[in-house]
Amino acid sequence: MSNKKNKNLNRRSFIKNIGVGFAGTIAAAPLLKSHAKKLPEEIKDSLDGKVEVTVYVNGRKFRRNIFPQTTLAQFIRDELNLTGTKVSCNHGECGSCTVLIGSDAVYSCQMLALDADQKFITTIEGLMKNDELGEVQKAFVDKDGLQCGFCTPGQIISAYALLKKNPAPSEEEIREAMSGNLCRCGAYPKIIESVDAAAKLLKK
């Protein structure tokens, strides 16, 4: 199956599943039956309505069958069990779920996992260097750029994305780049210090 064809299927079955969700019926998609035919009977049920997605997360390739309405955040947490990525608002308002796609920081709760098909993703776990903290993580520890720690993975990913694009940001640039990540504990002054310190660590 070509990539293009696969995409079309994904979109159609996505719409179908949303429909099922809203109507709350179990008039399961006739569309999907034709695909189900090819599957062994015993796994048919669990795959009903699922589509395949392939992503490269933290340097590893993952292929999974998922419901098309699965968000990237759900996919990362539930399918890949990478629970460092948090979901705080699920509406693209707080930044707790920030991950890198390529070199861009994105809100993973606002993206379908399907739209990340074939993409390269980095989560907080991917910033680790084996068992050691990466530079940005180290800077957040040393400068105490956190309190409760729940928004921290998102903050660190946003900081990392900034520093990849701008290795020596001014304080204003740090504030701008980090303004999409809420910290209710209000560790902001120390987050600014942390990003500044991370820039210096990365330069070394």
Partner: peptide, 12 residues
């Protein structure tokens, strides 16, 4: 340094 900072910064 906060004792729990590394585990929080690691995502673990």
């Amino acid at each position: 340094n906060r004792k729990d900072a590394p585990v929080k910064a690691s995502g673990k």
